[in-house]
Design a protein around this nucleic acid. Structure first.
Lengths: 173, 173
DNA sequence: CTTGATGAGTCTGTCAACGAGACTTAGCCT
DNA sequence: AGGCTAAGTCTCGTTGACAGACTCATCAAG
């Protein structure tokens, strides 16, 4: 084997990495799962998830800071004003991420009786799944059809003087 | 507002949570991005990602242990036998997760010039994206059509004696 | 056969993040 | 006035991340 071409590009500005910087902290996605499921209050999340208080405050604040959740004041009759956490548009756009994770998790990690949460089409009740398509409208069914490649923000990586291995032609796994 | 119905179900066996237990550790998905991009060797990953050695060994081992990567011995002419890391089927099935993250990241987190990596349809070159569909074949375009609900593995949550709030009807965010 | 290069680690010590449990605070209710 | 409750802070011990030096096996050069 020889040098994969990817080695010549830098990935400092990788958006997957940035996304994981926000969502990859422990519990972040669990918090989002809760909000997607209609759980919006601090203590309700605590009760279901057992996330340590401190971590939960921290995650909620981070998610608010990144514009994924917003704090909404509400007042329950006979209580003082409180806040609940709701998804912003940016947060809702994480639906595919949630569905992708749950599809994979359901296939490989579920208990024999199945997963405790599923995502369904409200109108017809059928379960959801993700389809990979391309901008030209083709449906992608086999992974051989998928090709990672340098995008518009690609920058060269300066190799540290004399790191040379013979080139190869094909960069996918 | 009143008790969201989700509060009555347990989420101990949630598959999203389990998936994040594997993929949510710092760097896990970056390692996978590398492998998807054709980077398969320890030091090549180090060079691009600057992941600390110890963490990288640890992540690679975890991913192998969970059957997402496999170690493949190879021998470069004039070197001793080494190992490279390749995706298993289970690993390849994470493609939707990668694409979902990168779509979201590209929309909200990219530099002005764009992302450094994109996923394309090999046959036509067009960029990929994910479509949410339901098992009945409907294309879901609005989040209002998505409904999280208890799945087959749902278990009741034993509420700790006298945690009662009035019920509400609708559980989505 | 010795020396050196190289890929892939291990070892050590420091610092940040996580987890458990007790304590705090603001506003409402009796 | 006293108590309750949601949502935090505080404290402290444990785990995980990181940096940098060290190890180890193997092959190639001399």
């Amino acid at each position: 084997m020889a040098t994969p071409p990817a080695l010549n590009w830098s990935v400092d500005n990788c958006t997957i990495e940035r996304a994981m910087g926000i969502l990859g902290e422990k519990w972040s996605l669990v918090v989002l799962r809760e909000v997607f499921s209609g759980i919006r209050r601090f203590d309700d999340m605590r009760v279901r998830t057992h996330i340590p208080r401190q971590v939960l405050t921290n995650r909620l604040n981070n998610l608010v800071e990144h514009g994924i959740l917003r704090r909404e004041p509400y007042r329950e009759p006979g209580s003082r004003v409180r806040h609940e956490y709701r998804l912003t548009d940016k947060g809702f756009d994480l639906y595919p991420v949630m569905i992708a994770l749950s599809e994979w998790g359901n296939r490989y990690l579920a208990d024999p009786e199945g997963p405790p949460i599923e995502y369904a089409h409200r109108d017809c009740g059928a379960e959801l799944h993700l389809a990979v398509t391309c901008a030209d409208g083709h449906l992608i069914e086999k992974r051989r059809e998928i090709q990672p490649r340098p995008g518009p923000g690609t920058r060269p990586r300066r190799p540290p003087e004399g790191t040379t291995r013979p080139e190869t032609a094909n960069g996918s796994a």
